[in-house]
Design a protein around this nucleic acid. Structure first.
Lengths: 197, 197
DNA sequence: TCGTTTATGGGATTCAAGTCCCATAACGAC
DNA sequence: GTCGTTATGGGACTTGAATCCCATAAACGA
């Protein structure tokens, strides 16, 4: 039972096998398997276990490779306006949406980052900070670059996967609560800080 | 090489072996072994591997049992006063101290809670919420019980191990930054919310 | 003291994750 | 087509976690 290749060429073959493995891994994750084995991914991709390990030397490497890349350079729409509150609202709402969309994978990456071995993990580099800095740009004349950055860090710290894990697993909040709080409802506590000055 | 028992009795024997295993596990963790094996704990406790597994059916169970219990019912000193800002300051500072003290174990528990088969984990029950509710008690006439609770949840979400992991590992902040921000420095952003009204 | 209970010890075994080695079939250059 | 290269496949092997079974020695009740 050999796979049918629509293109030939040896270098392409490698790329194809690799992407088949990644696609299979993502499919398994989407189907509910939190951390697919290299063997499971290989079987789902119709390649041998050995080949699976040839491309990804460990389960961890496979999961990292299967982690969805988000390369948006900004979370804002084309015409975000100059009001920092509106801009931040949009950015936070979009960001939370992204996190919730891939919650399973986010959890997996968080777990992997806690395991190790720490020296690896090319992912998890804090792209979100840049997005929030971008959203807060109109405030830069008033707050200065350093404060904007600190504020962005604080916001990301409040709305990322780490907080989501605690708020849902321990505090028992539903995922909807987190979203609606940033949705026109007048800020009263949790998000705070840009309403103060 | 048999251990010398200062007390006899069979039921006590079991309790003693169990606590020896837990003590050994904690010692190993304190000595730098992030996740001691049942076998390692057994050897350190001078009991056989089999006995180790008799008391803790898995490494996970051992680590959960070794997790330090914090049974303080309040994070406030004896005379906390009535000023909610002061009370909250004290509570947060103390809480952060607790988290930093046992950061390694906190990380381990967080990782275990992400590993699932989710159905276990008797720990991680959100005692901190009660502590912060306690600290905020003077505000109850003004805010009401439900809002106090929501505020406590938000605060815990901001200063717990999950946020610490991100702030240090990803954002690259030092652990001191988190402490000093709650230390007399006038709140400017990150903590917010009780300064607003 | 004797027999039973019970906590412990030791070793064989399973199971999953990874590694290694060798065989083979597809590809590409000639 | 032939031959060397290369991606793949299959299976044996290692290691760590965990289970099972049986033996033993100490504790207990009589």
């Amino acid at each position: 039972m050999s796979t049918v290749y629509e293109e030939s060429g040896r270098t392409r073959q490698k790329a194809r096998t690799r992407s088949q493995l990644i696609a299979a891994t993502r499919a398994l994750i989407a189907a509910g398997t939190a951390s697919p084995t290299v063997e499971q991914a290989a079987e789902a991709a119709s390649v041998s276990r050995t080949t699976g390990y040839r491309y990804f030397p460990s389960q961890k490497a496979l999961l990292i490779a299967a982690h969805p890349e988000i390369q948006t350079s900004s979370l804002l729409p084309d015409e975000p306006g100059d009001d920092p509150v509106t801009r931040l609202d949009l950015a936070i709402e979009t960001f939370i949406g992204l996190v919730l969309e891939s919650e399973g994978q986010q959890r997996t990456m968080l777990r992997l980052s806690l395991e190790s071995d720490a020296t690896d993990l090319p992912l998890r580099q804090g792209r979100a900070i840049g997005w929030f800095v971008d959203a807060l740009a109109p405030l830069e004349p008033r707050l200065g670059k350093a404060n904007i950055h600190r504020l962005a860090v604080a916001i990301r710290s409040a709305v990322g996967i780490e907080s989501l894990v605690w708020l849902t697993d321990i505090a028992g909040l539903s995922r909807e609560v987190g979203v609606t709080r940033f949705d026109g409802h007048p800020r009263s506590g949790a998000s705070a800080s840009e309403g103060c000055p």
